[in-house]
Design a protein around this nucleic acid. Sequence first.
RNA 1: GGCCCCAUCGUCUAGCGGUUAGGACAUCAGAUUCUCAUUCUGGCAACACGGGUUCGAUUCCCGUUGGGGCUGCCA
Length: 558
Amino acid sequence: MTATKCSYFLFFHSFSIELTLLKHKEYIDMRNGLSKDLIARVLGSAPKYTIEQLEEMFPQRNLPDGAFVTRVAPSPTGFMHLGTLYQMMIAKKLAQQSDGVFMLRIEDTDTKREVQGAVDVILKCADSFGLQPDEGPTYGGEYGSYYQSERKDVYHSVVAELLERGLAYPCFLSAEEMEDIRNKQKAAGWGTGIYGEWARDRDLTEEEIVARLDSGLVPSIRLYSTGNKDNKIFYNDKVRGRLAFPENEEDIVLIKSNDGLPTYHFAHLCDDHFMRTTLVQRGEEWLSSLNLHLQLFRMMGWQNPEYVHVATINKLDEQTGNSRKLSKRTDPEANTMHYLIAGWPVEAVLNYLYNIVASGFEEEKNKKPDTTIWNYPLRIKKIPTSSALFNTDKLEWWAKEFIGSLPVPELVARVVAWANEYGTDANKMQVADVDYLTGVLGIERDNPKRVRKDFITWSQTLENVAFFWDELFVANTEYEFNSDALRAFLATYNPADDKDTWWAKIVAVAESLGIKNGDVAMNLRVALSGRTNTPDLYSIMSVMGGDRVKKRIEGAVK
RNA sequence: GGCCCCAUCGUCUAGCGGUUAGGACAUCAGAUUCUCAUUCUGGCAACACGGGUUCGAUUCCCGUUGGGGCUGCCA
């Protein structure tokens, strides 16, 4: 029954494609494209390449069967969203596990939003999280440039072909005119956009086009859409299965008038074709333009890449109680750099994100601690379709687990590296004496089964143990010390004592004063650390050393 | 408004027609401990709703509701 239905739809699917293609052909016959001379004038210069030349310049990749060529294409806005990191991780993983290629492409087609140094932020994040692309800015590759702003020749060459075939046209609508159209459409309750009757310039004669160019107008290039929204098109998403959309009927902009650069849709067509991308994995916000993208690939007669639309990571809005996008403005956790600056272990962030997209990961890692995101497979079909809520508690748990699993020398190395790059002056002072730091961070880490798990980030780690440094130690002025107990302990204190001897002395002090062992320990604890909760007291004293211990206890005695 | 996507404990999820609906985080008890953190034991907690299909639905179909997205010469 299901099988019958399925094949029916498959049949229907290919049937509707045939229909569309047929329509294009009819239309191409009916409608003449622009002459080569006019195309050169419209674009500002003649296209540099033919499609055939481009196909030769960027040949099919020679990769093993089943290898995915993936890509992430962030815009350089000076801010890298956590969602971009998430996509990078998925794209790299998909390429890695299939012996494919992971590309980073800079989507810098919006000259208005360009920010200095923004590409560095993206590269810095990719590098810090171990998500270096195989191809991309500074990484090289045969399919560049990996900056869209440097690929104008490619876009213009492709659009020239569409202009020639009558599948695109120069449009002279001004911003005001389009605003006007939008308002009218809204008022009438119609869909907004340039389509059908609203596409004023779609059938301009060559003379009319020339006249407008002569008057100094610069056109955008629009798609000459022959779609009909009453027709359905289908696509089999790698995760979501069969998806149905109305055909696109909008004459969307392909090339912008102000800078001659492409819009996202057109760049996606040209770049992912000529970079030979095989799997476009992207946020689910792109789902609703899939019909358009499929249409573009069909127009060019190109095989479209496979698509995977990944659910975004959201956050619970405290105000409304609803789920919403991680906000660049109000949520620090939306910013990838935030994790680096605050000193989150990158592995913890990645583990957290990876468990969302590959849900069996955590359980497997529990069984086999050697499991990493690189040796646990990402099953495309298991990529979640509904958006997850960002959960700081869970991230903290991953961080505690990760830091807890680190051998002391590595823990020290990581803390030192962080402090030197992002730390405060106090932090830098703390890591200056590596031997002392090693002692401090080594406390209660001998037994791998019972490691303390109170370190979350590198910065919080240093803050947590700040009392070990005299410069950062803050004496507790609230606590009511039992000076007799402190004095009594000091009288018998010997830094060379082993733990049993040391404890016996505490018990002796408690007995002589008729108080509990714990009270004596607590007095010492507060005197030494200023806090009422610390790791093992004996270890603290050992690390601090006899002189510092004596000084602190004397300081507490009044 | 139109179109599209989504729906299992508070959160992330397992499940792919028959299960006491499993795990993890969080939370709550208890044990261990010089405090804290660990570690161990246990508890609370979910199939949004309504129709179908079926001997049988959390699972398949339709609808409702709810949430999210798109509706830009931003991506």
